[in-house]
Nucleic acid binder design. Structure first.
Length: 451
DNA sequence: TTGACTCAACATCCTTTGCTACAA
DNA sequence: TTGTAGGTTTCCATGTTGAGTCA
């Protein structure tokens, strides 16, 4: 029999003249719409569909992927051993899957090699404009071809196109048939409810996901596994520390709440715990917490409990003693390059004023941000204080000391922050991360969760 | 082109043990 | 016997981003 495949609005349309349309429903992922009499599958099933039709010996007329590159690509990169192993593992898995490698280990290089190996139209999807520009520059330099861009005010498609997740989400149903390979940088973002659609609407058979932390606390990496492929290779920070990344130490510093803070903390935390006890609600996972949040919508006591929890968090994460501890640390590291991380922007501004350190938050405009980072890079500034802005997706000049004054329980956040000081040092020196924790508060739990 | 604004989406948010129903 | 998940349909607050709009 002859089967025609074509791309239509994020789906692969399946037509045949030889058989009734209902008989196509036994193909993988194919559903028949009785009203229009058409059969279609989600675009991401395209490769599988081709494989099954091949097995059945069907004659396939395929117009799904209408474009090709006008020449094959090559790269001059010399892959390191682990990069080569990662690339091989991905090829062995049928050009599908996720590579988990630490920040600074050269994930881009592997992707460039993969793009060259396949030499098919490629879409690279990244979370921020900053990364979009970095990738674009890198690809232009390496392949000497013009690179398309979706996002940041441009909508230009080329053989290789770099896109933000947001723009990819907006364009995928339209251009989803044009690519043979899709690279998802920071692929953990793809677990987001909406972003998963990007991968569903693309027909690209080859899929590469890159991340430093694949697993998500909400379990959405399972969905990513379905859409991109399983994790096929990983290497830990500790495997590379010493040779390709700087060796490092983590120093945990405990500080006490002041008596006044302690009183307010115990009161607020007590309100929260009391509510849990009397309401019969048990918190064992993030979803239990979500239930509490929902309940707070129409239960004033639940709402009060949550607000009290919020107050308790504020007190322990922004404790006065942390500021004093930071003064000590900064005095000890006068000659070093230091990045200070917090969980709240208020504290960022407080520290910025107190220690005269340039601050970067979400309120810092792009121009000012670039200026600060440039000066940090040149050595004019030796310190920067920030909340979460510099965690990911920004090219941050290297430092050798990080101070995590406060943060969340997210393993990802911690890994990213640590990654900021791991670029190998010219003198072979060690990097140092301070983790400052308020003792005898829930922050001890938070701190143990992230490691 | 720039800047200020709004909006939608995403991420984190977790006590200290005990109950129940159900699946493996 | 042992292990594991748990109410259904939106959301207390804070931080961050990209897209879109308008002057």
């Amino acid at each position: 029999m002859t089967v025609r495949l074509s791309f239509e609005n994020g789906t692969v349309r399946v037509d045949t003249d030889d058989l009734p349309v209902d008989s196509l429903a036994d193909l993988p992922g194919v559903e028949v719409d009785p009203r229009s009499g058409t059969a279609r599958a989600p675009a991401y099933r395209y490769a599988f569909l081709r494989a099954v039709l091949g097995e059945r010996g069907a004659d396939v007329e395929d117009t799904v992927r209408s474009t090709a590159l006008d020449r094959s690509l090559s790269t001059d990169y010399d892959l390191r051993d682990y990069q080569r192993d990662a690339l091989d593992a991905w090829h062995d898995a049928g050009d599908r899957g996720v590579l988990e490698l630490p920040t600074g280990s050269g994930k881009t290089v592997i992707a460039v090699a993969a793009i060259a190996d396949l030499s098919v139209p490629t879409l690279v999807v990244v979370p921020t404009i900053d990364l979009l520009e970095q990738w674009r520059a890198e690809l232009e330099a390496e392949f000497d071809v013009s690179i398309g861009q979706f996002g940041g005010g441009e909508q230009i498609q080329e053989g290789i196109t770099v896109s933000t997740y947001d723009s990819a989400y907006l364009r995928a149903d339209e251009v989803g048939g044009d690519f043979g390979l899709v690279v998802f940088d920071e692929v953990h973002h793809l677990g987001g409810e909406g972003y998963q659609d990007i991968a569903r609407l693309l027909a690209a058979p080859a899929r590469l996901g890159l991340t430093a932390t694949f697993e998500r606390p909400d379990g959405a990496h399972e969905a990513i596994t379905k859409l991109v492929g399983p994790k096929v290779y990983d290497v830990a920070v500790d495997d590379l520390a010493g040779e390709h990344l700087a060796p490092y130490d983590i120093k945990r510093v405990e500080v006490e709440l002041t008596p006044a803070e302690r009183e307010r903390y115990d009161e607020a935390q007590g309100t929260f715990v009391d509510y849990l006890r009397t309401s019969g609600l048990s918190l064992r996972s993030g979803s239990d917490y979500q239930k509490l949040v929902m309940r707070s919508g129409n239960d004033p006591r639940a709402r009060e409990a949550l607000l009290a929890k919020q107050r308790a968090r504020d007190i322990m994460l922004n404790a006065d003693e942390k500021v004093r501890e930071l003064a000590d640390i900064l005095a000890r590291h006068r000659e070093d390059r230091v990045i200070v991380f917090t969980a709240h922007t208020n504290l960022v501004y407080r520290l910025s004023e107190r220690f005269l350190i340039p601050a970067i938050t979400n309120e810092t405009g792009a121009k000012e941000r670039r200026e600060i980072l440039d000066r940090f890079r040149s050595g004019e500034y030796s310190r920067v204080v920030t909340a979460n802005v510099l965690d990911e997706g920004v090219d941050v000049p290297d430092a050798n000391v990080a101070v995590v004054l406060s943060g969340s329980g997210s393993e990802r956040e911690f890994t990213q922050r640590l990654g900021r000081i791991l670029r190998p040092k010219a003198d072979g020196g060690r990097a140092l991360l301070y983790e400052v924790v308020s003792s005898e508060t829930a922050e001890e739990n938070i701190a143990s969760r992230r490691r």
